[in-house]
Nucleic acid binder design. Structure first.
Lengths: 337, 337
DNA sequence: CAAATCTATGTAAACGTTTTCAAAAAATGA
DNA sequence: TCATTTTTTGAAAACGTTTACATAGATTTG
């Protein structure tokens, strides 16, 4: 395959001139440019980005690290990320950590060897230590966190305001006349679930609603105790009349329990999920849910990364962007209209 | 940042020796290896894969081209693809064509400039000309088609047997006692939909079932005439008692129509979808559907790509792998159990 | 018209590896 | 011990760009 030297020789100009032709912006006489271009075409020349990358000390690629790609929250945000980044001329390398810190560290080591220009990451559930992440910063590789971020350190991040989402949803349930609302709570070790719970509690408190020991039921995926507890509670003397689930799947499970007990939704019990998964509109009753704006998050994370990449070296300022989510009200919680 | 030369100098060995240390497999005395390794560690040396790529003439990356990432069929297959490819030491670059041939061609041009080692692609709906695809082969870059493939040329591909899937589903409906089955047919310009229809027709024929002009209703996404036609048909003197949809969304739409008319599923009408989307189990009644084995497809496509990459140059043999799908029987079509 | 300025091109040195070939060192055999 | 074979190392040439610097030619200026 032809290289620049070949094109240069065949055209009768120097290597540098050919290079300049292919790096637009550069000054070269229109006549020569044309000569070079037609000769390149004729020789079927194609610039070698690896060589350019070596010389320039940057790869033109960015890494996107996620636990796993086949989850709506990740595939949706990556969709828009890829759009923004490829538009800007970057290649997107996807890497799945499978919720393992070691894998995460391995991936980062690999990306460093590739001389990646930046990283967008949603950290794994188990990620507590963050040395592999700070090491990126030390090497001056911009890192943007999205969806899940690190509580401690100063980092760039783009996340949904989970607190606010839960607050909105809870307020909505109260507006619908719910008196005894229960939160199906996620694993508190995960920041987003902690925030959701916090928003729930705050809304109840602000609205001066009762909140007993039964207001929070641990409802972790894969743990069935929560389901039993919910069933018992629904059959008690003062059953709940509103449910805020930590996620859509939790809401779905709750829907089944409620259905099984013959309760009417939303009349007897209103339910709101979290995540606004595709299937929310497919269900009957359709499921109200807090939309996480995945595509917005992806787009913003990508743009933040681009601006970090192009930033003059200078002291680092972590930029935390937090988007308010959007509550989608559907049949499962709409008692009034 | 330290490079090989620095490590060599600091250790008192030659550049070549350091290189050999980092390319395992190579012969180098254990003592020297250790010396080099500790010095590399001390200098915080990290191999530069771009440089290696330039020298070796290969990038260590493969491109995965899909219409868009946030569709279950793509995110699921890419999940397993990434697992296989990263395990084998390759980076996965994802590129979205957004169902545009021009974008597809652009992406391929870019991947060529990156000196990609191989490509896995699910072609865009509108892709009729394939010169951009054959050009990859001419440059000796292995290409694997998955999900959607090209009808004409000799290529490597891994796809589900759509004909067989539709055949299975139709046979199942007949087994359930359905007498008048209707196929909600997809756009016939898309190969997979053509195949599904073919399987449907073949099953009816083989089972000697009646098949009138109303047996196929064009039911393309976004075209609403199909819905009306279905509604009318369901209200006619001899309404259908079985439906095979071209996809799960089509099945969902049909479910709504049936629901609206007050028909009982599966007693009055049995329905089978295609794709086995996540939400099939969430619906009530749960939706029977043909599972496309996305993860298997992804894994097989990745493995086929690897074997093509590692193959000695020789004459090209297109390998078509076709997997039988798996029919998942659920409430929407289960009249007997 | 000479001097000064500007523009377009060329020369050559990087960038950090891998790999061929040759040489040195170590191991083996008689 | 010395010749022979084998193993380990080194020197140097790629790989295909970009870019700092130099130079030639064209244009402007007084």
């Amino acid at each position: 395959m032809a290289n620049m030297k070949d094109v240069a020789r065949a055209t009768g100009v120097s290597l540098a001139t050919v290079s300049r032709v292919f790096n637009e912006s550069e000054k070269v006489r229109p006549a020569t440019r044309k000569k070079v271009l037609t000769m390149a075409e004729k020789l079927n020349y194609r610039p070698n980005k690896i060589a350019a990358g070596l010389r320039k000390g940057k790869s033109g690629s960015v890494g996107v690290i996620i636990p796993v790609i086949d989850r709506e929250v990740f595939s949706s945000s990556i969709k828009s990320m890829e759009e923004v980044l490829s538009q800007a001329g970057y290649n997107v390398i996807i890497c799945q950590s499978h919720e393992s810190v070691e894998k995460e560290a391995q991936i980062i080591e690999n990306l460093k060897q590739l001389r990646i220009d930046g990283v967008v990451i949603s950290i794994s559930k188990e990620t507590k230590r963050i040395d592999h992440l700070t090491s990126l910063q030390q090497d001056d590789i911009p890192v943007i966190f999205f969806d899940r971020d690190v509580e401690l350190a100063k980092f760039n991040s783009v996340v949904i305001n989970n607190y606010n989402g839960a607050y909105q949803a809870t307020s909505h349930l109260i507006d619908q006349g719910c008196q005894r609302i229960v939160h199906l709570a996620g694993n508190e070790n995960v920041f987003i679930f902690k925030e959701r719970k916090r928003g729930f509690v705050a809304a109840l408190r602000d609205m001066k609603m009762e909140m007993g020991p039964q207001s929070n039921i641990p409802f972790d995926d894969g743990h069935l105790e929560g389901v039993d507890q919910l069933r018992q509670l629904l059959q008690s003397d003062s059953p709940p009349d509103g449910i805020l689930a930590n996620g859509d799947i939790a809401a779905l499970v709750a829907l089944r329990v409620v259905e099984e007990l013959g309760l009417k939704i939303p009349a007897d019990l209103a339910i709101v999920g979290f995540g606004d998964s595709n299937f929310c509109t497919y269900l009957r009753p359709s499921l109200s849910s807090v939309n996480q704006r995945n595509e917005d998050i992806g787009k913003m994370a990508a743009n933040l990364l681009l601006s970090e990449i192009n930033k003059e070296a200078g002291e680092f300022i972590g930029t935390q962007q937090m988007l308010p989510p959007v509550l989608k009200i559907r049949d499962s919680s709409n008692r009034l209209g």
